[in-house]
Amino acid sequence: MSLAGIFLILFLLVHLTINLLVILFDDPMVYNRAAHFMGNNIVIKIFEIVLIGGLLLHVIYALILQVQNWIARPRRYSKANFSSTSFFSKFMIHTAGVILAFLVIHFSDFYFRAKFGHAAEIVSDGVVYHDFATEVIDKFKMLPFVIIYIAAFLFLGFHLIHGFQSAFKTLGIENNRYAPVIQTLSVIYTVVVVAGFTAIPLVIYFM
Protein backbone atom coordinates (compact mmCIF):
# COMPACT_ATOMS: atom_id res chain seq x y z
CA MET A 1 0.00 0.00 0.00
CA SER A 2 2.57 2.51 1.16
CA LEU A 3 5.15 1.35 -1.38
CA ALA A 4 2.67 1.71 -4.21
CA GLY A 5 1.73 5.06 -2.76
CA ILE A 6 5.30 6.33 -2.71
CA PHE A 7 5.76 5.05 -6.24
CA LEU A 8 2.72 7.04 -7.36
CA ILE A 9 4.00 10.04 -5.46
CA LEU A 10 7.24 9.90 -7.44
CA PHE A 11 5.37 9.43 -10.69
CA LEU A 12 3.31 12.55 -10.00
CA LEU A 13 6.49 14.59 -9.93
CA VAL A 14 7.56 13.29 -13.33
CA HIS A 15 4.10 13.89 -14.71
CA LEU A 16 4.07 17.40 -13.33
CA THR A 17 7.43 18.26 -14.85
CA ILE A 18 6.24 17.26 -18.32
CA ASN A 19 2.93 19.05 -17.97
CA LEU A 20 4.62 22.25 -16.91
CA LEU A 21 6.38 22.30 -20.28
CA VAL A 22 3.10 23.45 -21.82
CA ILE A 23 3.13 26.74 -19.99
CA LEU A 24 6.87 27.14 -19.53
CA PHE A 25 7.70 27.12 -23.26
CA ASP A 26 5.95 29.10 -25.92
CA ASP A 27 6.78 26.45 -28.46
CA PRO A 28 4.12 23.73 -28.12
CA MET A 29 6.51 21.25 -29.74
CA VAL A 30 8.59 20.99 -26.56
CA TYR A 31 5.63 19.47 -24.82
CA ASN A 32 4.64 17.40 -27.81
CA ARG A 33 8.13 15.99 -28.13
CA ALA A 34 8.22 15.11 -24.47
CA ALA A 35 4.83 13.45 -24.74
CA HIS A 36 6.00 11.62 -27.83
CA PHE A 37 9.08 10.39 -26.02
CA MET A 38 6.95 9.20 -23.12
CA GLY A 39 4.58 7.49 -25.52
CA ASN A 40 7.16 5.63 -27.63
CA ASN A 41 10.28 4.90 -25.57
CA ILE A 42 10.47 1.20 -24.77
CA VAL A 43 11.74 1.75 -21.19
CA ILE A 44 8.91 4.13 -20.51
CA LYS A 45 6.46 1.67 -22.00
CA ILE A 46 7.57 -1.02 -19.59
CA PHE A 47 7.45 1.53 -16.85
CA GLU A 48 3.93 2.40 -17.89
CA ILE A 49 2.76 -1.13 -17.22
CA VAL A 50 4.47 -1.05 -13.86
CA LEU A 51 2.77 2.23 -13.15
CA ILE A 52 -0.66 0.92 -13.96
CA GLY A 53 0.16 -2.12 -11.85
CA GLY A 54 1.15 0.16 -9.00
CA LEU A 55 -2.05 2.10 -9.28
CA LEU A 56 -4.14 -1.07 -9.39
CA LEU A 57 -2.24 -2.44 -6.39
CA HIS A 58 -2.86 0.77 -4.50
CA VAL A 59 -6.57 0.68 -5.31
CA ILE A 60 -7.09 -3.02 -4.67
CA TYR A 61 -5.21 -2.92 -1.37
CA ALA A 62 -7.19 0.13 -0.38
CA LEU A 63 -10.44 -1.68 -1.06
CA ILE A 64 -9.41 -4.78 0.88
CA LEU A 65 -8.19 -2.76 3.84
CA GLN A 66 -11.27 -0.60 3.81
CA VAL A 67 -13.58 -3.58 3.85
CA GLN A 68 -11.58 -5.12 6.70
CA ASN A 69 -11.77 -1.86 8.58
CA TRP A 70 -15.52 -1.65 8.18
CA ILE A 71 -15.89 -5.21 9.40
CA ALA A 72 -13.69 -4.42 12.41
CA ARG A 73 -16.42 -2.16 13.74
CA PRO A 74 -19.78 -3.68 12.88
CA ARG A 75 -21.72 -1.12 14.89
CA ARG A 76 -20.82 2.54 14.63
CA TYR A 77 -20.86 4.99 17.49
CA SER A 78 -23.99 7.06 17.68
CA LYS A 79 -22.00 10.15 18.44
CA ALA A 80 -19.14 10.78 16.04
CA ASN A 81 -15.51 10.76 17.07
CA PHE A 82 -14.39 14.22 18.10
CA SER A 83 -10.71 13.39 18.22
CA SER A 84 -8.65 16.30 17.07
CA THR A 85 -6.73 14.24 14.57
CA SER A 86 -5.68 15.30 11.11
CA PHE A 87 -8.94 15.95 9.32
CA PHE A 88 -8.06 14.49 5.92
CA SER A 89 -6.82 11.18 7.33
CA LYS A 90 -10.42 10.25 8.02
CA PHE A 91 -11.50 10.72 4.40
CA MET A 92 -8.80 8.91 2.43
CA ILE A 93 -11.26 6.51 0.82
CA HIS A 94 -13.58 9.39 -0.12
CA THR A 95 -10.88 11.55 -1.66
CA ALA A 96 -9.65 8.43 -3.40
CA GLY A 97 -13.06 7.96 -5.00
CA VAL A 98 -13.03 11.47 -6.43
CA ILE A 99 -9.51 11.04 -7.73
CA LEU A 100 -10.40 7.73 -9.32
CA ALA A 101 -13.37 9.30 -11.07
CA PHE A 102 -11.12 12.01 -12.38
CA LEU A 103 -8.64 9.42 -13.59
CA VAL A 104 -11.34 7.80 -15.69
CA ILE A 105 -12.07 11.13 -17.39
CA HIS A 106 -8.39 11.83 -17.69
CA PHE A 107 -7.66 8.49 -19.31
CA SER A 108 -10.50 8.74 -21.79
CA ASP A 109 -9.43 12.27 -22.67
CA PHE A 110 -5.73 11.79 -23.19
CA TYR A 111 -4.34 8.39 -22.66
CA PHE A 112 -6.66 6.22 -24.73
CA ARG A 113 -6.83 8.76 -27.49
CA ALA A 114 -3.09 8.91 -27.63
CA LYS A 115 -2.92 5.14 -27.71
CA PHE A 116 -5.67 4.54 -30.16
CA GLY A 117 -5.00 7.50 -32.39
CA HIS A 118 -7.94 9.89 -32.20
CA ALA A 119 -5.76 12.85 -31.39
CA ALA A 120 -4.86 15.55 -33.83
CA GLU A 121 -1.48 15.12 -35.45
CA ILE A 122 1.29 17.45 -36.28
CA VAL A 123 4.46 16.84 -38.30
CA SER A 124 7.80 18.17 -37.23
CA ASP A 125 11.21 17.27 -38.70
CA GLY A 126 9.53 14.42 -40.54
CA VAL A 127 8.14 12.80 -37.43
CA VAL A 128 4.43 12.62 -36.73
CA TYR A 129 3.48 13.86 -33.28
CA HIS A 130 0.17 14.00 -31.53
CA ASP A 131 -0.57 17.67 -31.02
CA PHE A 132 -1.44 17.39 -27.34
CA ALA A 133 -0.22 20.88 -26.59
CA THR A 134 -2.86 22.55 -28.73
CA GLU A 135 -5.47 20.17 -27.42
CA VAL A 136 -4.58 20.99 -23.82
CA ILE A 137 -4.65 24.66 -24.54
CA ASP A 138 -8.01 24.35 -26.26
CA LYS A 139 -9.47 22.37 -23.39
CA PHE A 140 -8.32 24.77 -20.76
CA LYS A 141 -9.89 27.66 -22.52
CA MET A 142 -13.19 26.13 -21.44
CA LEU A 143 -14.23 27.02 -17.90
CA PRO A 144 -15.89 23.67 -16.92
CA PHE A 145 -12.70 21.79 -17.72
CA VAL A 146 -10.70 24.20 -15.64
CA ILE A 147 -13.02 23.80 -12.68
CA ILE A 148 -13.11 20.02 -12.84
CA TYR A 149 -9.38 19.86 -13.21
CA ILE A 150 -8.65 22.15 -10.30
CA ALA A 151 -11.22 20.47 -8.08
CA ALA A 152 -9.69 17.08 -8.79
CA PHE A 153 -6.27 18.31 -7.80
CA LEU A 154 -7.53 19.84 -4.61
CA PHE A 155 -8.85 16.41 -3.69
CA LEU A 156 -5.57 14.89 -4.70
CA GLY A 157 -3.94 17.38 -2.36
CA PHE A 158 -6.17 16.29 0.53
CA HIS A 159 -5.22 12.73 -0.26
CA LEU A 160 -1.52 13.46 -0.47
CA ILE A 161 -1.17 15.59 2.60
CA HIS A 162 -2.02 12.58 4.74
CA GLY A 163 -0.80 9.89 2.38
CA PHE A 164 2.72 11.22 2.01
CA GLN A 165 3.67 11.13 5.67
CA SER A 166 1.50 8.11 6.38
CA ALA A 167 3.49 6.07 3.89
CA PHE A 168 6.67 6.82 5.78
CA LYS A 169 5.08 5.79 9.04
CA THR A 170 3.91 2.53 7.55
CA LEU A 171 7.39 1.85 6.27
CA GLY A 172 8.72 2.48 9.75
CA ILE A 173 11.02 5.20 8.52
CA GLU A 174 9.86 7.98 10.76
CA ASN A 175 11.24 8.41 14.23
CA ASN A 176 11.22 11.34 16.58
CA ARG A 177 14.13 13.01 14.86
CA TYR A 178 12.80 12.71 11.30
CA ALA A 179 9.14 13.22 12.12
CA PRO A 180 9.12 17.03 11.74
CA VAL A 181 11.20 16.77 8.56
CA ILE A 182 8.76 14.37 6.98
CA GLN A 183 5.81 16.45 8.09
CA THR A 184 7.33 19.50 6.44
CA LEU A 185 8.27 17.59 3.29
CA SER A 186 4.74 16.29 3.12
CA VAL A 187 3.30 19.79 3.12
CA ILE A 188 5.86 21.16 0.66
CA TYR A 189 5.35 18.26 -1.73
CA THR A 190 1.57 18.60 -1.62
CA VAL A 191 1.69 22.33 -2.19
CA VAL A 192 4.12 21.93 -5.10
CA VAL A 193 2.07 19.22 -6.78
CA VAL A 194 -1.28 20.92 -6.34
CA ALA A 195 0.05 24.37 -7.22
CA GLY A 196 1.97 23.02 -10.18
CA PHE A 197 -0.90 21.10 -11.70
CA THR A 198 -3.52 23.76 -11.05
CA ALA A 199 -1.24 26.48 -12.39
CA ILE A 200 -1.47 24.98 -15.87
CA PRO A 201 -5.20 25.47 -16.52
CA LEU A 202 -5.18 28.79 -14.71
CA VAL A 203 -2.31 30.17 -16.76
CA ILE A 204 -3.84 28.90 -19.98
CA TYR A 205 -7.33 30.11 -19.14
CA PHE A 206 -6.20 33.62 -18.28
CA MET A 207 -3.46 33.78 -20.98
Partner: peptide
Amino acid sequence: LGFGNCTNTGACEVE
Protein backbone atom coordinates in the same frame (compact mmCIF):
# COMPACT_ATOMS: atom_id res chain seq x y z
CA LEU B 1 -8.43 -11.39 15.95
CA GLY B 2 -10.24 -9.08 13.56
CA PHE B 3 -8.78 -5.72 14.49
CA GLY B 4 -8.79 -3.19 11.64
CA ASN B 5 -5.78 -1.80 9.82
CA CYS B 6 -3.81 1.24 10.73
CA THR B 7 -4.15 4.22 8.40
CA ASN B 8 -2.07 6.51 10.59
CA THR B 9 -4.92 8.84 11.45
CA GLY B 10 -3.42 9.40 14.89
CA ALA B 11 -6.74 9.24 16.78
CA CYS B 12 -5.24 6.61 19.11
CA GLU B 13 -2.44 8.94 20.14
CA VAL B 14 -4.86 11.76 20.87
CA GLU B 15 -7.13 9.61 23.00
